[in-house]
Amino acid sequence: MENWQIVWEARDSLISGLFTTIEIFLIGSVLAFLLGCLVVYLLEQAGPWLRRALRVAIDLMRTLPFLIFAYLLYYGLPSLGVRLDAWTAGLIALVIYHGAYFAEMLRGARLVMPAGGVEAARACGFHGFTLFRRILLPQLLIRVRPLIGNQLIYCLKDTAFLTIITVNELTAAANSIQAIYFIPMEAFVAVIGLYWMVSIVIELLVKWAGRFGRKRGFDHV
């Protein structure tokens, strides 16, 4: 039991790691989500060339391991003269990488969405961003809601990779505790519990958001 005692005494560093994780996860996932929406809007408006370029960019991100991308931004960019601190590099990596996933998710929902609603909107004089924001996006979001929950949890878990580019988040805190006291089991189990708790909160929030869809008869999707 003494090992758990050590973990308890090191709780300050775990808590500060947890806050860094939550902070970078929240900012990162919100920006990634907005980026995904922006990309889908551009796909909607763009000519064939930009559309192709965006599709390639999305696919490139999706086939890239997240860790490599984070490495590239933090260790690779300085050779091009761009020097980012670890936190910023990590945040940008999260935003672009998960933004691509959000975009792909919304794009998929757009493809299977019946054409009639958008047509009716055009007939009423809607166009451009207003059409996207008022008519298209709300329906897409209701449809992809369960996938969003999944993606948020992937995003949370990917923040753990950022320990490797020296962001002092939760995994980094656990790592330093286990390295100092050599209690890897207890340190990592404690951290798993904390990740788990954050995931449960995400799940509950996403489930709660589901009532917007249920009220509107979207339960079957």
Binding site: P114, G116, E119, C124, P138, Q139, I142
Partner: peptide, 23 residues
Amino acid sequence: VRALASLRARTGMVFQSFNLWPH
């Protein structure tokens, strides 16, 4: 696109499949 949209707004259309906005 903007000019076309504002002209379209002067017509009203009713579709076979209703096309109400479900949200």
